[in-house]
Each structure stands twice: as structure tokens, then as C-alpha cells.
Amino acid sequence: QCPHKWKKVYCTLCNSKRHARDRCPNIWRVYLLRDDSSQQQDDNNEKKQKLPIERIYCYNCGVNGHFGDDCPERRSSRVPNEDGSAFSGENLKEDMK
């Protein structure tokens, strides 16, 4: 039998295989969203939720148009990013991804 028997770790909160339930980033990465109903009543376009592409910059290569977690270039920082960070296309509302 293999001595390095694969220990199955997975998170029952988010189904990730990279951490256990008690160390899930979803425990602290919780946002209090703006009230949607007040958004709809407000016809002012400025208050509408939309994603301004010109404000999206990559922390890894500095280029406009994608977030650092989604960068195709070699990673610049030597600290690993295992679980994903705030600066990811995943970290957006469904319809904006």
C-alpha cells in the first residue's frame, strides 16, 4: 500500500479541494451588498451597477482589461495564490462575470 495515501480534503461550504471547511475564505470574504430595491427605484444612471472596463487593471502585469488572478502571464509575486483573491473575475455578481 502507498504510504503517502492521499488525504481527501475538501470544503463542505464551497466544494473547493484546496482547504477544509474550517479554513474556507468564505468565512471572512463576505460582502454586505447594496440594497437592490433602492437601486431600481433610482433612475439615476450613475448609481446603476455596471462594470467600467477602463477601471480594471491587473496587479500582475499592469495591463488594462483583466484582474490579476486571471492574468495569463507568469506570476510576479513569489507568494502563492492558492484560493484566489479579491481581484478576480469570479469576485463579481453573476451577470457581470
Binding site: L32, R34, Y59, S77
Partner: peptide, 27 residues
């Protein structure tokens, strides 16, 4: 930037993510 959150209501997660960006990910 997508106007989903009010930063004043989310200072806690934002502080953690500030340290995440400049401690782990920034190039």
C-alpha cells in the same frame, strides 16, 4: 468599481483584502 458595495459597510473584508493584495499578490 461595479458599485455593488458601500465600502463603509464592508471595512472588515476590505482591510483583509488590502493585506491580501499587497502582502501576497501585487507584482
Amino acid at each position: 468599481i461595479s458599485n455593488e458595495i458601500d465600502p463603509m459597510e464592508n471595512l472588515g473584508v476590505l482591510l483583509v483584502e488590502f493585506f491580501e493584495l499587497y502582502g501576497k499578490n501585487f507584482g
